[in-house]
Nucleic acid binder design. Sequence first.
DNA 1: ACCTGAACACCGTTCAAGT
DNA 2: ACCTGAACACCGTTCAAGT
Lengths: 217, 217
Amino acid sequence: VTNSAARRRPGRPRPGSSTLSREAILTAALALVDKDGIEALTMRKLAARLHVDPMSIYHHVPNKAALISGLVRVVFAEMALPDPAAGAWQERVRAWARAYRDVAFAHPHLVLQIVTDAAAASEAAILISEPLYAALVDAGLDPAAVVDAAGTLVEFVHGYALGAAPSPPTAPTGDPMDERLAAMDPDQVPTMRRVHAAVPAGGGFEAGLDIIVRGIG
Amino acid sequence: VTNSAARRRPGRPRPGSSTLSREAILTAALALVDKDGIEALTMRKLAARLHVDPMSIYHHVPNKAALISGLVRVVFAEMALPDPAAGAWQERVRAWARAYRDVAFAHPHLVLQIVTDAAAASEAAILISEPLYAALVDAGLDPAAVVDAAGTLVEFVHGYALGAAPSPPTAPTGDPMDERLAAMDPDQVPTMRRVHAAVPAGGGFEAGLDIIVRGIG
DNA sequence: ACCTGAACACCGTTCAAGT
DNA sequence: ACCTGAACACCGTTCAAGT
C-alpha cells in the first residue's frame, strides 16, 4: 500500500504502482499511535512510515486535526455491539458499558480523543448508542429518564476510561494516591485515611455500574 | 512583577528591581490559558507576556509539563469546599459534586488537564475529597462502599466536565447531535430518534447526580 | 545566582514545481 | 491528478556567555 522506499520520485505514480489512500493513511496512523502514543503521531513520521513525502498526505486528509478525528471514527466503527436483546435490561446496560469501555481500552493512547470527540463524532458514535437506548426503554423509563440514564452512564465510562488511560505527556508522574495520602497530615484527611486503610482499592468499573444501574431502576 | 519591557538586559537583576518568580509565572500562564486556550500557552508567548527572555522561565520551572501541572495545582487549591457538615448526606454529596464541577468550569480551557492530572495531582486534590468521604461515611456506608461511591461520582464529574468543555483543537467541529441524528437512516436508530424527539435535551448534571445518589443509598 | 541569546532539533502547512 | 521539496513560521530545550 506504500510507494517504494528505495526510489521515491515526484510525479503522478505510474498506473499499477501502489498508491496512497486515505485508508492506508488512517491504518498507518492508528498503528503509529497504538505503538508510540499520540505525541508520536507527526505528519513527518507518518509519512516516513508510508515511505512518502510528508506533503503527499495532504492530498488525502485536509490537516492533522482531521486525521485524528478520522482515527476516532475508525475506532468507533470497531466497537463490538452486544447482542441487542439478550437478558434483563440491567445486564444489557452493563454489557453495553463494558463494550464501550473496551473501545477505549483497545487504543489506550487515543482515549483522550475518543472521549472528547465522542459527542461531535461520527455516525458510528450514534449508532453505537442505539442498543443502550433500547435497553433503557425496555426498562420502562420515560424518554426524559432514558436520556438522563444514558448520559450518566456515558459520562461515567468517559471518566473511568480517562482515569485508567496512560498519562498524557503533560501529566506529572505522580506518586500513587496511597503514598501521597500516607504522607499527609492525618488531621487534614481523617476520613480518607481511615477508609483507605480499610479498603485500599475499590471495585472499580463494575462497582460504578452497580451504583448507576441501581440508581436508574 | 515583570522586568521592564523597554530595556531588557542580560545579567542578574539589580536588587530592588522586580524579579521573576514561580508564582508570577504560574499567574501569567493561567491568565494566558484562560484567555486564549491551552494551545496558546507557549514558553515563548508566556515569556513575552512577562517581558522576559523565554529561557528565563526555566530557572523557576523545570519544563513545560511541570508548568502545566503547576497550573492544575493552583486551580485545585482554589476549590471552594462546601460547608462540611451541613444537611443530609445526600445534599452534602451533591454540593461537593457541584463544587468540584465548578473547579473545572472556572477554567474551561484547562479541563482536560484537570481531569487527567487529578489522580496523580497534588495534595490539594486529596484534601478536596475529604468532605466527600465524610458525607459518605455519614451515610452509613462501609469503607468499600465509600470508595466505590466516591470513585463513581468523581468519574461522572470528570466525564461531564470534559463533555461540557470547549472542544480541544483536534476535535472536529461537529454538527450538534440532533442534526446528525436527523440525517441518519431511521431504521438504524429507531429508539434514539423516538426518544430524542420526545426529549431533546435531558437534565444534565443534576439528573446524573440524582441517579448516582439514589444508587449509592 | 539569575537572565540572555544563539543554536539545535523538531513541528504543521503553503506553494510552486515536477510528471 | 497526484506527489515532491523547499520554505515559512513556529515549537521546547541545551548550552555557553553575560553581569
